Simulated assay, not measured.
Amino acid sequence: MAGIRDSLGRAGYDLLSRAVTQYAREKGDGGLRVSGQPGGVVHLRDGLVVAVASPGAPGPGTLLMRSGRSGAGAAELRVVRMMAMQDAVFAMVAGCVDGCVELEDPAEPPDALVVGEGATRLLQQAARKLAALDVMPHPVRPDRERPVPAIEVDVTQFGELQRELLIQSDGRRTARDIAFRTGRAVYPVTVEMARLLGAGFLECVEWAAPAVRIQLRMPPEGLRRRTPPTAERAVVAASPTPLPPLPPGPAPALPRRTPGASGITETLASEKHGASWKGFFRLRSGTAK
């Protein structure tokens, strides 16, 4: 499998970084539409990025609603909005960037930050996350790998996010898909998927392979949202011969986490920016016009 490092060397990443930082420095207020896969929209105010939306990552509303935290306070709401913004940038640079164009009369979204983030800092955070994924034993991308459980396991032996990944991985869902289904940021989901693949608990199968299903034994009262059930077990039914169960004892330990894999660890900081606007800014297909 090709590593993630090639994303950092492609013109698309350079284009996005150059476009956002230049727009922040020279104009400061407005927005850029990023074309590509998954693409997105970047909103700026006073030279700082205040919101980023992308179909490649859950927005603040999804993170709050799917996780059951709809009544968040002001401090938690800011953290969720910041996390969603950083996650959207990561999803864009982990994909393919074709070009950037200035939005006409952009309306600032209602979930914009009161105090934004410096464009350079925001892009550097995304670059560090890509580099961290690339050095893992089994690097993955948010919108590519669609794994299935590789062996029969008792999912109660795993952490909450790992348990959700084992249950949700069915050969059709990517890390991005699972992030939306579980109301989690796409970056930590991608990291945990890479760790489970590297440890042999998940595997990627060809589309032509026989369908793999996960059968769960649920407690009579059913499952509560984000609450580990008392007797939950994922069983992989494969054809023609079932895989042997794991030997008694705890599951093998997974590799150590990469620092910063589970959320926001950096402090907020602003950047200085110029006040002049040198004319209409437009970038297409990696060429400044």
Score class of each variant (00 low, 15 high):
Pro255Lys: 04
Pro142Phe: 05
Pro147Ala: 03
Arg128Met: 14
Val50Trp: 05
Gly40Gln: 06
Ser70His: 13
Gly71Ile: 04
Glu232Gly: 14
Asp87Asn: 06
Val140Tyr: 03
Arg5Asn: 09
Pro220Glu: 12
Thr227Asn: 06
Ala132Val: 01
Val115His: 09
Ala253Val: 12
Glu145Pro: 06
Ala179Tyr: 04
Glu271Trp: 05
Arg141Asn: 01
Pro245Ile: 10
Arg163Pro: 08
Ile167Ala: 15
Ala288Gly: 09
Ala88Met: 12
Pro55Phe: 06
Ser276Asp: 12
Ala132Tyr: 02
Glu76Phe: 09
Gly274Asn: 02
Arg282Ala: 14
Arg284Met: 13
Ala91Thr: 06
Arg146Met: 14
Trp277Ser: 13
Val148Leu: 12
Val50Met: 05
Val135Trp: 10
Glu26Ala: 09
Leu254Asp: 04
Arg5Tyr: 11
Pro210Met: 05
Glu108Pro: 00
Tyr23Asp: 10
Ile167Glu: 13
Gly28Asn: 11
Ala253Met: 08
Ala112Met: 01
Gln162Cys: 14
Pro247Met: 06
Arg256Trp: 14
Arg257Tyr: 09
Leu246Met: 15
Arg128Gly: 12
Thr190His: 02
Leu268Gln: 13
Arg226Gln: 11
Pro147Val: 00
Gly118Ile: 06
Asp87His: 01
Val20Tyr: 00
Ser70Ile: 15
Leu122Gly: 07
Ala91Cys: 07
Leu44Trp: 01
Leu48Thr: 05
Gly59Val: 08
Leu48Ser: 12
Leu254Tyr: 09
Gly260Phe: 04
Leu123Arg: 01
Pro240Phe: 13
Thr258Phe: 06
Met83Asn: 14
Pro210Glu: 07
Gly39Ala: 01
Pro147Leu: 01
Ala185Leu: 11
Glu104Lys: 10
Glu26Trp: 13
Val41Lys: 03
Ala231Gln: 15
Ala269Gly: 08
Val191Trp: 06
Leu113Lys: 08
Ala251Phe: 01
His43Lys: 03
Asp143Asn: 08
Val191Asn: 03
Lys289Ile: 11
Leu8Thr: 11
Val115Met: 09
Ala288Gln: 15
Ala253Phe: 04
Val189Met: 00
Glu206His: 15
Pro106Ile: 02
Thr182Gln: 12
Pro228Asp: 14
Val42Pro: 06
Arg25Gly: 15
Ala238Gly: 10
Arg163Asp: 01
Pro219Gln: 08
His273Gly: 13
Arg256Leu: 13
Leu246Asp: 11
Cys204Arg: 10
Asp154His: 13
Glu152Tyr: 07
Arg225Gln: 12
Met85Tyr: 05
Met65Lys: 14
Gly263Val: 00
Ser70Cys: 07
Ile167Tyr: 10
Gln215Ile: 10
Leu254Gln: 02
Ala112Phe: 04
Arg81His: 02
Pro242Arg: 14
Leu15Gln: 13
Pro250Tyr: 07
Ala199Thr: 08
Arg233Lys: 15
